[in-house]
Write a protein that binds this DNA or RNA. Structure first.
Lengths: 253, 253
DNA sequence: ACCTGAGAGTTGTCGGACAAGATACTAGGT
DNA sequence: ACCTAGTATCTTGTCCGACAACTCTCAGGT
């Protein structure tokens, strides 16, 4: 039973429609600013009812991909989708690849340790529970740019300890998804500028005091359980992070 | 006729439903994890059709406020809404107030200047067009923490130049909304750690080389037109910025 | 104690219909 | 010829009713 490959369980049709439209936009079939076919026409073309199509459109709208104007039509938003959007792209690996560079991993090691009090709180575990700690230096085109320390509950890999080794050579998100069927639903990230202390500086191969961006975050699975707590030290020039800020649409009185 | 009184009820009903549910969640009437009434029941209670309610629910879902499970019900998500979320809170003023401190402005000045080539591009203007430049030092409880430089198209205030003066004492977003009816729909922000150069250091009252977080962003109005381009230098310890990252829901092949 | 299946409840999808807003065109006046 | 106002038509918003697909619970049998 454990070796069950993830059955492509039937996703709601509206999700498929949403993905389809997202792809069309991303691939340029629907240029920014262009008008989509009318809802009845699009519904026929996609083989779904208008209600289902509207579900998808509503989702795309709140993602900011399209704008719907009453009586006028639905338009593809000027896709200010920047390459490395912090609130969309997940993981250092994706970010490096998005920048068109080769993602690599060096100085990787993992260990099972008892959770500190603060770590246990972040992951909603009992203090002292076993947690898997993975430390890695991420490289872009062979050059070190990020030092990361990832912490996840030990029980996740208790039955398949060999999974930890895979994390030394591949994205943790990839491993979680492919080996455990665990999909990250969302994460909460914080960041601030810091100076490299001697430990970090040595591992990244930069002088002490070098400018870094520290990012720490907790990722949650679909059912809201914390899955991964991570700390990253980025070289200041490594990435240009971007965030889409959604305006004060709804104001509480 | 031109002098039509602005009837405010032009918003789609689904938006009102969405706001209503958002308020109920924020006010604790719908605790995190609790189940919402069934769609037919909720629709009756809110006085809308089920289709309209579903539009609102779909939007709330993609905002991460609720989770819908096929055949099981709709549940309020564990709202990990952090205080100073970069992708939600807008403007330094809001951020300072959210932290429970008194927002102030010092060393404020404004001037009308011709747009540089890069600024013109950001604001989609002709190079050399007049732009209003507002420079301010923002304070929290009297202590300088942010140096900001805001740039907006001159035509916006061409007919009411006195508006520029208001920006020296209040949030630009507030002024835009109250005086011009301009509501920011979304913005694209980028950031990176920098060191304070002599100019910035002097104005913020910190030593040269101090750790800062530089944020630059462009804000857009509801119709997608760029309205405001701004540069901010934040003291590293001023805020703890947070971003809600939405998971890799849809993966492009 | 465990497994099995029927039932009720909930969300997903469908089809059609009408209302409300926006745009484009036409007829009328200047 | 130009502008204006009204109309025609298209598009999105909302509504209704119905059925399908899925979950969970609970009674019944093993």
């Amino acid at each position: 039973m454990p070796a069950g490959p993830v059955e492509a369980r039937s996703k709601p049709r509206s999700i498929r429609v949403q993905d389809e439209l997202t792809q069309r936009i991303d691939r340029g079939m629907l240029p920014a600013g262009s008008r989509l076919p009318s809802e009845p026409a699009l519904a026929v073309e996609l083989g779904v009812s208008r209600a289902t199509l509207r579900e998808a459109l509503r989702a795309l709208e709140s993602e900011g991909l399209v704008r719907r104007m009453w009586g006028a039509g639905t338009y593809v938003a000027d896709s200010r989708r920047v390459a490395n959007s912090l609130d969309l792209n997940f993981g250092v690996t994706d970010a490096i690849r998005a920048a068109g560079m080769q993602a690599g991993i060096e100085q990787a090691r993992h260990s099972m340790e008892p959770a500190t009090v603060s770590e246990a709180a972040r992951l909603e575990l009992q203090p002292g529970s076993d947690v898997l700690v993975v430390e890695r230096v991420r490289t872009a085109d062979g050059k070190p740019i990020v030092l990361s320390r990832d912490i996840l509950p030990g029980r996740l890999i208790a039955k398949r300890p060999e999974i930890a080794d895979q994390m030394l050579t591949r994205s943790i998100y990839e491993v979680l998804e492919r080996e455990l069927g665990l999909v990250i639903h969302h994460g909460v990230a914080s960041f601030r500028p810091v100076r490299a202390d001697i430990t970090v500086a040595r591992r990244l191969g930069v002088p002490r005091g070098e400018l870094l961006l520290a990012i720490w975050q907790v990722d949650y699975s679909e059912d809201g359980a914390p899955v991964l707590s991570s700390y990253e030290y980025h070289l200041a020039d490594a990435f240009e992070f971007t965030v889409l800020r959604r305006g004060p649409g709804r104001r509480l009185s």
